[in-house]
Design a protein around this nucleic acid. Structure first.
Lengths: 206, 206, 206, 206
DNA sequence: GATGAATGAGCCTTCATTCAT
DNA sequence: TATGAATGAAGGCTCATTCAT
């Protein structure tokens, strides 16, 4: 009472979100979530099957959306028929911006996924994104004529990881979009130069 | 039984380390640690005040050592009187190698600090390192004549973060030293080129 | 939805029956019954006051019917004016067959009463039948001139109990009627001979 | 305090036994057992891994003991080289007495096994005994030259079941041994006559 | 030093039932 | 009639820690 069903649902979602953000999934307590939402523990189970399902409800769509965006944006890059570095990097830049935007629009949920999901099926979600990034990186390298050897695999992995970190930091620190764009431009330049160095040097040797 | 005091101490340390690595600090169970160590729960409290103190004992020296090394290595860089880029980057390279070596030598403890410390006072240890790295980055930039504005702060932070990730990935994935060196050389080149781009472009504009 | 009131009532009955058979009364869950019936929990309380009342509705008539049949059949036996053993046993045999038939016709309900009723007022229904059987047995014994002493009471009780078991096993194992008749004939012979031995021996001694 | 460890263990066992007897395994409450024993819930888990293990501790040895006794006594019967009915029945009588004695000596535990074990691995223990009894019955019948057909299987099963009931009733009703012996003698006679009828009739026909 | 029993609070989840809509 | 949100109690179990022995 006081709540309509939908309001309760959202009260639970909200309070759970706060609790998850504060304590992480595992240490989050159903009792505390209920309390914050002004409910009994049992009441929550009319709305969600269990703790994990609350997390899922909070995070599921955004995670799937992000993954799909990630994949589709990266595919876009590979489909560039005639490959010119600048263009590729520009496309990547656009893609990155879209992804950043998506994360901006789902700021807290991203935090849940990336920092509070230990103990849920999303605990390795970041790694899935990194895998996509790696695959994309590999294709990009090959297009420049670079021959990837086993030894490079780890470099690729790490660049993908730190790339993810860069992206995530934008979200984590709550930059404004203007700040983010200024920042991303710099990052882009940095990485452009970095990759240029790696790829050209190798090619010069051959 | 069968343990001398010191052996018991170390048995606890070892088993706790495994438990923390496997479950993380919060989900680690004193009961299970005791069990693995062939002790009763109570016995552990003769050696450690509580769960956090076991973690502290495992991690404290290495964390402090790493922090000191981090600080001193970065200070070394700044003390270079006459600043020449190449030399600076070389010094940084040396520093990075020393840090990597330190981490290699304390492989599992690093994992504890960086991946299993949620719920302890070390949960933000990585950020302290990043702060050092940031400070160092700032000094490096200034020495090249670059004027850091408020807008750059976040770029600096993120480069420091992703730099830490790069370093940590080496540990996390258990590279051999040879692999690590091959990898670090590439990273170094990448970052060298990246920074060059950022710093020179700015200077050219002025 | 789609159910008229009566249909809903019967849907509940059906699904409750299955749930009770599967889990027993106590472990049966109103939620699951509602689910199976395509209803919400609340809806069921328009048709039944509570869980026990659903059980009651399922079981009540059959239980009462069986009890009445039991009593009337046994009374029939006692009313045989001139008592000849064979005739008595024949009458008992007829009675037993009627009872078996009744159980056959209410196979699942019998299972509910005899195996799933723990926690309801029917949990001791079997014992009420046994009491009738005992009374009947006593009368039968007395008619043969046998003097029942306190010591015999327990024998009587147990023979009644195992008699009930015999009858119930037929239901429990889902025999066909033909099989049941074959089986009952054997049982009848067995018990006839058994009682003969008990009753005659005693009489011979006197 | 107040309890030594062993006393606590036994207090738990005792109170659990009462609770199980009163409510059955499933409805038995760890909280209530703890309360009756003057403990906190948690305390019990120092002595028993979980609810089922308390039951196991109460029941395990007696169940195993009874099963072994059952098997060995029945084997004894089959080993009679030259088979004479009277002797066989006498041996069976001895066996039954031993089993009755065993049950007497473990009166309450037998109640647990046979009436309170639903939800534990002992819930079908009675049936295992019945199987032994059936096998034994089959052998006895064959020794007399009786040809068992598929149709007889159910008769055998039921006689075994009701035999078990007879035995169990002695325990359930708390007869004194004298009463039990008086009763068992009658039962023995009854069954002897019954089997005679079944087996001889068949043989006469051939 | 070691034991392990005990604590007391906490965990997530399920329950039969009620009742405003 | 039917809904489904809410209740309030209870379920089994685990926890880090303490402390008498």
């Amino acid at each position: 009472m006081g709540y309509s069903s939908k309001d309760t649902y959202e009260a639970i979602m909200n309070c759970a979100k706060d609790e998850f953000l504060e304590k992480g999934f595992q240490k989050a307590s159903m009792r505390r979530i209920a309390e914050k939402a002004g409910l009994t523990t049992g009441a929550m189970y009319n709305h969600f099957k269990n703790k994990e399902m609350i997390f899922e409800a909070l995070v599921g769509d955004v995670a799937e959306g992000l993954y799909k965006l990630f994949v589709s944006e990266h595919e876009l890059c590979h489909e560039l028929d005639s490959y010119i570095e600048d263009e590729a990097f520009d496309t990547m830049s656009d893609s990155t911006n879209k992804i950043i935007d998506y994360m901006f629009d789902n700021y807290e949920i991203m935090k849940l996924i990336l920092s509070s999901s230990h103990g849920t099926k999303y605990e390795h979600f970041g790694e899935r994104l990194i895998e996509v990034e790696e695959m994309s990186t590999r294709k990009m390298m090959e297009k420049t004529g670079y021959k990837i050897t086993a030894k490079d695999e780890f470099f690729i992995h790490t660049m993908a990881s730190s790339g993810m970190v860069n992206t995530y930091e934008v979200v984590k620190h709550g930059l404004t979009r203007e700040e983010a764009y200024y920042y991303m431009e710099k990052i882009q330049k940095f990485y452009y130069a970095g990759w240029n160095e790696i790829l050209n040097q190798e090619l010069k040797l051959k």
